[in-house]
Amino acid sequence: MKKIALFGGSFDPVHTDHINIIKSCKTNLNFDEVWVIPAYVNPFKTLSTSSVTQRLEMLKLATMDLNFVKIETYEISKQTSSFTHDTVKYYKSKYPDLEFSFIMGSDQLDNFEKWDHFSELIQEIDFKVFLRSKEFNQEIVEKYNLETFEFENNYLSSTKIRNLEDLNLQIKSVNDYVNNNLMYLYERLESRMDEKRYFHCLNVGQMAMELARLNNIDLNKAQIAGTLHDIAKRWTEEELKECLLKNDPSLLKEPVPVWHSYAGAFHLKNDWLMNDAEIINSVYNHTVGSKDMTTLDIIVFCADKISLERTYPGVEKLRALVKSDLLLGFKELLKNQYEVAINKNTKNSIGMKLIESYDYWIKG
């Protein structure tokens, strides 16, 4: 009889340890197939921070080289809170000639007896428990005579991944997908900045997309760079200084108010593991520009200054100018920024990068 492992969960996102459990089911437990069953809504979680489509796409990326894996959409298709008891009954009824076991992580043992129809469920199917951490509920294991298994464990969790922890251990294709779709922004951005700044970032992303559409530039890249341009804006001065010391100490000569653009670029490259140099450079250049500005750089620079919530005098005319002639609008914004900086400070204290940008783009 064919042996099938049912592996359910939120997979928000799927990560390396999920895949290592799946591989262990095949190589160590001798299952013929593993059926991965993403939940529509986990009964023990009140919020799923990604869409069903996104979670399915990430699962496809993560399992594309594993021909013994099937992604099952039974629970998702119900579009309601899912219970393991219903899922097990469905599969056992539909496939009576198959032998099923259910895969669970040891982190679920504490709530195990709270699962819906638990007394029936424990009789319905054999459970295989993978040890996700060094400490687990041994009492439950012994009480129900559960089998436990070790696997190649990185001690990851979806929560950690959403919060930028241990990304070096994450599946690269899944991490790229998350970055390219601006997923988990609440965890990654909003928690580090006030609401006003957060919505400014969203607005800049939208404005960057509009300008990209007008100038035949990749809309997705523009939205990502625009949305993430101020990612380090609310870091403390000490955090910014530490980042620049680590990555490029020469930037400490620039005024403190522009440090966030450089720190943000390094943060995306080193902590988000973003590998798109165009996006990273646009974040790097968004505050005072540089001599070497791509069209995407110019778009993000302008979008930051004319985003929807901006209400300073003359902004509507500048928006119209930028939308009708991107380069002309950019030059006008750069000129205004330079003049304001000179009036507010002195030429000796506005930083060399703004002077270089002004000299190249305005003075020619």
Rank of each mutant, 00 (worst) to 15 (best):
residue 98 L to G: 04
residue 239 E to Y: 08
residue 16 T to A: 15
residue 223 Q to R: 14
residue 203 N to F: 05
residue 102 F to H: 05
residue 338 Y to Q: 06
residue 263 A to S: 15
residue 222 A to Y: 03
residue 139 E to H: 06
residue 343 N to S: 13
residue 323 K to R: 15
residue 135 E to S: 14
residue 118 F to A: 06
residue 243 C to V: 11
residue 78 K to P: 02
residue 147 E to Q: 11
residue 314 G to C: 10
residue 296 L to V: 07
residue 355 I to T: 02
residue 305 K to T: 04
residue 266 F to H: 08
residue 355 I to W: 03
residue 200 H to G: 04
residue 346 T to F: 08
residue 195 E to L: 12
residue 329 G to A: 11
residue 12 D to I: 06
residue 175 N to V: 04
residue 281 N to V: 01
residue 176 D to P: 04
residue 254 E to M: 09
residue 90 Y to E: 12
residue 327 L to W: 03
residue 222 A to L: 09
residue 283 V to P: 01
residue 240 L to N: 05
residue 205 G to P: 06
residue 147 E to G: 00
residue 180 N to W: 00
residue 294 T to S: 15
residue 130 F to M: 08
residue 122 I to G: 01
residue 342 I to E: 11
residue 168 N to V: 07
residue 86 D to H: 15
residue 21 I to S: 04
residue 214 L to H: 08
residue 322 V to E: 10
residue 47 L to M: 12
residue 242 E to G: 04
residue 261 S to G: 12
residue 8 G to W: 00
residue 265 A to P: 03
residue 170 Q to H: 14
residue 62 A to L: 13
residue 37 I to A: 02
residue 359 D to P: 00
residue 325 D to W: 04
residue 82 S to P: 01
residue 215 N to F: 03
residue 352 M to F: 07
residue 87 T to H: 03
residue 179 N to K: 10
residue 174 V to N: 03
residue 305 K to H: 09
residue 328 L to H: 09
residue 32 D to I: 00
residue 42 N to C: 15
residue 96 P to D: 07
residue 74 Y to V: 13
residue 188 R to E: 10
residue 230 D to Q: 10
residue 2 K to R: 12
residue 193 M to K: 07
residue 126 D to V: 08
residue 92 K to D: 02
residue 340 V to F: 15
residue 10 S to L: 07
residue 288 V to M: 03
residue 111 N to A: 08
residue 354 L to P: 02
residue 219 L to Q: 11
residue 91 Y to R: 03
residue 18 H to F: 11
residue 298 I to P: 01
residue 262 Y to V: 13
residue 258 V to S: 15
residue 116 D to E: 10
residue 71 I to D: 04
residue 225 A to C: 11
residue 99 E to I: 09
residue 19 I to Y: 05
residue 41 V to L: 15
residue 358 Y to N: 03
residue 147 E to V: 02
residue 91 Y to E: 04
residue 231 I to L: 07
residue 323 K to P: 07
residue 8 G to P: 02
residue 161 I to F: 06
residue 265 A to H: 01
residue 67 N to R: 10
residue 300 V to M: 09
residue 210 E to Y: 14
residue 207 M to A: 15
residue 166 D to N: 13
residue 344 K to C: 11
residue 68 F to R: 00
residue 101 S to D: 06
residue 325 D to V: 09
residue 226 G to D: 05
residue 211 L to D: 04
residue 88 V to T: 08
residue 12 D to Q: 08
residue 20 N to F: 13
residue 329 G to Y: 03
residue 354 L to H: 01
residue 8 G to N: 05
residue 145 N to G: 00
residue 62 A to Y: 14
residue 32 D to K: 00
residue 64 M to E: 13
residue 220 N to G: 07
residue 304 D to T: 12
residue 52 V to P: 01
residue 231 I to D: 00
residue 114 K to D: 10
residue 8 G to K: 05
